[in-house]
């Protein structure tokens, strides 16, 4: 479990961002004291900091520079300003990523997990698990009771999404969106084909009826 510090002065945004991150398995730390952000950040020692630029008392650029002097914690600057200047300045002052509001939460999550795995070598975090099913995302292989199968990129993405949202239904639109976010601009037919292939691979491994169709809603494990 990784902890993320949110430095954001908009209370509702802080709360909702926190809820969203907690849903995706992060521990969220936040504070509404903007006087001693640096001390607070250093004392909490989070794995990553989400930093807004427009803050009361000290602005984000200042905080970024001060934090960098004393710590190597990965910093993602999250701001509503989309000017090139702010981006350049943030990156020059030591921020690792720059995300503009209103952000695409998938992109934000992807940037967070990429940064975390780079900073803390999550490569060995092990496969995703669901019952006896194990998915090695890095290698693109699927394991079930000692049998293994290779997955194509799209199949991998679909199964990964379903396994990350275990028990919840993923709609066809959600799945297509996830595929689009990894540069595969699939249409309805391709999605159906991909799902059927994935299902056949699961059946070949002996995991029959694992991937369930929820009529009119989508798919789930």
């Amino acid at each position: 479990m990784h902890s993320i510090l949110i430095v954001e002065d908009d209370e509702i945004l802080r709360r909702e961002l926190g809820t969203m991150l907690e849903k995706h398995g992060y521990i969220v730390i936040a504070s509404d004291d903007f006087e001693n952000v640096i001390e607070f950040a250093l004392s909490q020692n989070p794995h990553l900091i989400l930093l807004d630029l427009n803050l009361p008392i000290h602005d984000g650029h200042y905080l970024c520079r001060e934090l960098r002097k004393r710590s190597k914690i990965p910093i993602i600057v999250v701001t509503s300003s989309d000017s090139e200047m702010d981006e350049l300045m943030s990156l020059n002052l030591g921020a690792d990523q720059f995300v503009t509001k209103p952000y695409n939460t998938r992109i934000l999550l992807a940037k967070i997990s990429a940064l975390l795995s780079r900073a803390y070598d999550m490569g060995a975090s092990g496969p995703l698990r669901y019952g006896e099913l194990a998915l090695d995302v890095g290698r693109g292989t699927l394991l079930y009771r000692g049998n293994s199968a290779e997955l194509t990129r799209n199949e991998l993405r679909i199964l990964q999404l379903l396994m990350e949202n275990q028990g919840r239904i993923a709609s066809r639109d959600d799945i297509m969106n996830a595929l689009w976010q990894s540069d595969a601009f699939v249409d309805d037919n391709t999605l159906t084909v991909n799902i059927n292939r994935l299902r056949r691979k699961l059946e070949a491994l002996g995991a029959k009826d694992l991937l369930k169709t929820r009529r009119g809603q989508g798919y789930s494990l």
Partner: peptide
Amino acid sequence: VHEIKTPIAVAKLICEN
């Protein structure tokens, strides 16, 4: 526009959640 982006971001997060 920059001001309104924060409430939009918040509203979108609420939708997501």
